[in-house]
């Protein structure tokens, strides 16, 4: 089976009448890093919470490694680890006790060697005897990750993992995510830091107002929508794009003071050299030129804007 997680026609309407998810269909491939992007309130956390068993779905079903999360909740849940967005920890427990507790809760027999490995990887080993309330926010975040990894999950959910996290922890977290992926763990992260998705993800899904509006390979998404533009600021304004430049995707901007050339970043031949020579031949002079690349952020903003 190639899909480790299969979400089918999932819907959620809260008691207040708020429709948080609308007919979401999503298949997650085994071993991939999937980034779920969306603005606040888009339904990211609701989606995760349903898969993890914290929120009941109103419609649809979810299969985790082939197991229905409602009917075969044991088999489904023991494969899943969750790091929630908020720092939710006990105060008086020691780091070691709380991580061991999580392993037991998920039905795994005691394994001190595994707990030690997890704590070491997260730089928590030296703090293992400390009470959680004595730890800093960043350390508490690490404890929550350690808890989620304590039972060796096959699917790991990271809900806004780097929100409010310092640079060092963010870097550690990214390294850890890659390491986990190398070990065969499937990772689904939600984020509104687009650079995070751009840096980490194999595929990207965009969720907006409870609807999954796009799921795409990151590379394909960047290629499809990732356009580069070259803007030439002209000496003399033009009324129209000169006839001799018909073969190029050119537009006039800034009341004819600028000529904008849009090209594909993925192709070898961008055509810039030929265009500049052609402009020279036609006697179109320019003061300066500037290039820009649409980031995932632009893509995202455009997508969401076109929907609303």
């Amino acid at each position: 089976m190639s899909h480790i997680l299969s979400i089918q026609q999932l819907g959620k309407t809260y008691a207040s009448g708020f429709e948080a998810l609308k007919n979401v269909d999503l298949d997650i491939r085994r071993g991939e890093i999937f980034a779920l992007l969306g603005p606040n309130g888009a339904g990211k956390t609701t989606l995760i919470s349903i898969v993890c068993g914290i929120v009941n779905a109103s419609a649809g079903r979810v299969l985790a490694d082939g197991h229905d999360i409602a009917r075969e909740f044991r088999a489904a849940r023991e494969k899943i680890g969750l790091v929630p967005q908020e720092l939710l920890t006990d105060a008086f427990e020691s780091v070691w006790a709380t991580v061991s507790f999580s392993r037991g809760l998920f039905g795994k027999p005691r394994d001190d060697a595994h707990i030690e490995k997890v704590l070491r990887e997260l730089s928590l080993w030296d703090k293992r005897h400390e009470k959680i309330m004595a730890l800093s926010g960043g350390m508490k975040r690490r404890v929550m990750i350690a808890k989620a990894l304590s039972h060796e999950p096959k699917i790991l959910f990271l809900d806004e993992p780097t929100a409010g996290v310092d640079v060092e922890l963010r870097r550690d977290m990214w390294a850890m995510v890659r390491r986990l992926r190398d070990d065969g763990v499937t990772i689904i992260l939600t984020t509104h830091y687009i650079e995070e998705a751009e840096e980490m993800a194999d595929r990207i899904g965009v969720i907006h107002k409870g609807e999954l509006i796009l799921v795409e390979e990151k590379a394909a998404l960047m290629a499809k929508l990732g356009r580069k533009q070259l803007t030439l600021h002209l000496q003399q304004p033009l009324n129209e794009v000169p006839q001799g430049l018909n073969g190029y995707t050119l537009e006039l901007a800034d009341d004819g003071h600028a000529l904008v050339y849009t090209f594909d970043t993925q192709t070898e031949q961008t055509g810039i050299g030929a265009l500049l020579r052609r402009l020279n031949e036609l006697g179109v002079d320019f003061k300066s030129l500037q290039s820009s690349e649409s980031s995932l952020e632009d893509i995202f903003v455009n997508l969401v804007r076109s929907r609303s």
């Binding site: 993890c52 068993g53 914290i54 909740f73 044991r74 088999a75 489904a76 849940r77 023991e78 899943i80 969750l82 929630p84 908020e86 939710l88 920890t89 006990d90 105060a91 999580s102 809760l105 998920f106 039905g107 808890k147």
Partner: peptide
């Protein structure tokens, strides 16, 4: 109250 119940709810316990 503290929110840590998420873990119990998401665990394979009946």
């Amino acid at each position: 109250w503290s929110g840590t119940i998420y873990e119990v709810l998401s665990a394979p316990v009946s």
